[in-house]
């Protein structure tokens, strides 16, 4: 008779890393389908290329560093997919390849792989390519050549260059339904919300960061809007445009680069939201979401210190 001996606990919730990533990917599918529906083959091209590059670069880097290859946990696919989601449709193939490779390599692997990255790898890859080749991130040009049934100008760029008058003809409901120019998937606001609510409901992410991020964006935008509504856009417009929705649900909630304590998460989310609006209004970039998340990522170790002290009780058993 052979018995198995192991240490407690002997049960497990049967949730593993691959399952979490699988569901995060599933949650992105509505937005992916929408973007393929809107932009056609070019969208599919960017997405497929990004995912393939992410997986191949992880295999290569891990082989080179003589570490176990862990692509079956799905994290590389998720990184590739998210990277594609925030890029414009017109991104040339080499930019997708370099950006995704940098996401995996600089964003994650040189820090030690999954779970060790201090910043969101997707945004690291994005930021490096954004600084290097700003011309390819002109979202106004990205929609050229498409027969779109909505205003083909990038709302945030219009807001930056022309002020509030220019964005008057964007109906908020159109923005919500994804009838706006933006990143491949990040424009599809309602579809991202559907995916986000799904992963929230299934418990793969927690409510703290999405909620406080939303509150941060709305509160900060409201402050500006209430002081001078002829100069600053309305808060809901800020919430629905650019990368805010994808940031709220998918980028700011990256496990490794966000705090794990409740109050740390809330401060993190608020910081992301506030910085987003500040960067949108005062920086030279039309959208500030990704830089805001990147900046807040750097505060994560500090925010992790916000923690209730464990209660150490001495009790006696009779």
């Amino acid at each position: 008779m052979k018995l198995i001996v192991s240490s407690p606990p002997h049960w497990h919730a049967k949730i593993d890393v691959a399952k979490i990533h699988l569901h995060l990917i599933i949650a992105l599918i509505p937005a992916v389908l929408f973007s393929v529906y809107t932009y056609g083959i070019h969208s599919a091209r960017v997405i497929a290329l990004a995912v393939a590059t992410a997986v191949i670069s992880e295999i290569l880097i891990r082989r080179l560093l003589k570490k176990p290859v862990t692509i079956d946990d799905g994290s590389a696919i998720l990184i590739g997919l998210l990277f594609a989601m925030i890029m414009p449709t017109s991104t040339p193939y080499w930019l997708v390849v370099i950006g995704t490779f940098l996401s995996i390599f600089i964003g994650r692997e040189i820090f030690g792989g999954l779970g060790c990255n201090p910043m969101n790898p997707v945004i690291v890859g994005w930021a490096i390519t954004r600084i290097s080749w700003p011309n390819y991130f002109n979202l106004d040009l990205a929609s050229v050549g498409y027969n779109l049934d909505f205003n083909y100008r990038y709302p945030l760029a219009l807001l930056k260059s022309g002020g509030v008058d220019q964005i008057a003809d964007f109906a908020l409901i159109d923005l919500l339904l994804g009838k706006q120019v933006g990143g491949l998937g990040s424009a599809a606001a309602i579809f991202l919300v559907i995916g986000g609510v799904y992963i929230l409901y299934r418990g793969f992410i927690t409510w703290e960061i999405p909620l406080s991020f939303t509150v941060g964006v709305l509160a900060m935008a409201s402050i500006f809007w209430l002081t001078d509504s002829s100069q600053y856009a309305n808060p809901v417009f800020h919430l629905l445009t650019g990368n805010v929705i994808i940031g709220i649900f998918f980028l700011a909630t990256d496990f490794s680069s966000s705090p794990f304590n409740r109050w740390g998460m809330i401060v993190f989310g608020l910081g992301c939201g506030i910085l987003t609006i500040i960067l949108r209004i005062w920086s030279i970039y039309p959208d500030g979401v990704l830089f805001a998340i990147l900046i807040m990522n750097l505060f994560t170790p500090l925010l992790d210190k916000i923690h209730k002290k464990p209660l150490h009780l001495e009790i006696k058993e009779l």
Binding site: I98, I106, I110, I128, T129, I131, S132, W133
Partner: peptide, 21 residues
Amino acid sequence: EPFAFMIEAPGAFICLGLLLA
């Protein structure tokens, strides 16, 4: 297309870090 990141300050840090490694 120049990889302009490399001549920016963060590029210097990453380049130096990789070389040190």
